[in-house]
Amino acid sequence: MNIQADYNFAYLDEQTKRMIRRAILKAIAIPGYQVPFSSREMPMPYGWGTGGVQVTASIIGPDDVLKVIDQGADDTTNAVSIRAFFAKVARVKTTTHTSEATIIQTRHRIPEEQLRDGQILVYQVPIPEPLRFLEPRETETRKMHALEEYGLMHVKLYEDIATHGHIATTYAYPVKVEGRYVMDPSPTPKFDNPKMHMSEALQLFGAGREKRIYAIPPYTNVVSLDFDDHPFEVQKFDKPCAICAAEGVYLDEVILDDQGSRMFVCSDTDNCESRQAAGHRGELSGMEAAQ
């Protein structure tokens, strides 16, 4: 017996896709505003990118080329399975090269390579409400967004400085979009915040469990919140990438043995691999070969 389930193109039915596209259009029209949408059950658990997958499924066409990254890497479980999912249900071409992709679905990173006009970056968002941990009531946070009452966001930054001497928020660092809405950029490291500002690519954010979609259209002002005497700063790394010697990129710390030795390597695997292919070598790049 051979029963093959017959899916609509890109898994979701056309009515659902229309509903999500309407939400996306509204989100683009009001940058940074969280648009509610009726999130569907997806064949994966909440927290694995159900929001991002629904957004991707609604915008993807047969000619699109899809790249999926998880913490910057193309080869982690989440990235591999979402890429395989769309290869199966939409029969689209997939890639790991940032420049070849038309749609990039991401969890927790923005690629190092500058995105171009025409590309779309789809973020998976766990908690879309930046004010949530300070104000648990949804009715109240909606009112605060509506009336532009954002003093509370600075209370969090104040607490950081009071406790740690500097703004210790390193990811999900709140931004103000086009001078109006305060937005959670999803748990990307704050290192990536400047890349959102005036980005040529369209940025879409999908939160499946929380049922919200929001967006940053191309060429939009995105400003990280800060204090006059404690300005916004991104993370700095003492060493370049141990494999490709890249500087000014976001690095992951990898523990090498149980003596506590460690290395810092590019979080963006595609960027690291293309640099290696171009002949760049870091201090530990020969190590794998030696082993």
Binding site: L134, G151, L152, V155, K156, Y158, A162, D228
Partner: peptide, 21 residues
């Protein structure tokens, strides 16, 4: 859940004060 200083400072930040010191 936030410090005494932040409790007092909240209103100042709400009316646009952006200087931590």
């Amino acid at each position: 859940a936030v410090s005494a200083g932040a409790n007092v400072g909240e209103r100042l930040m709400a009316v646009g004060d952006r200087h931590y010191g």
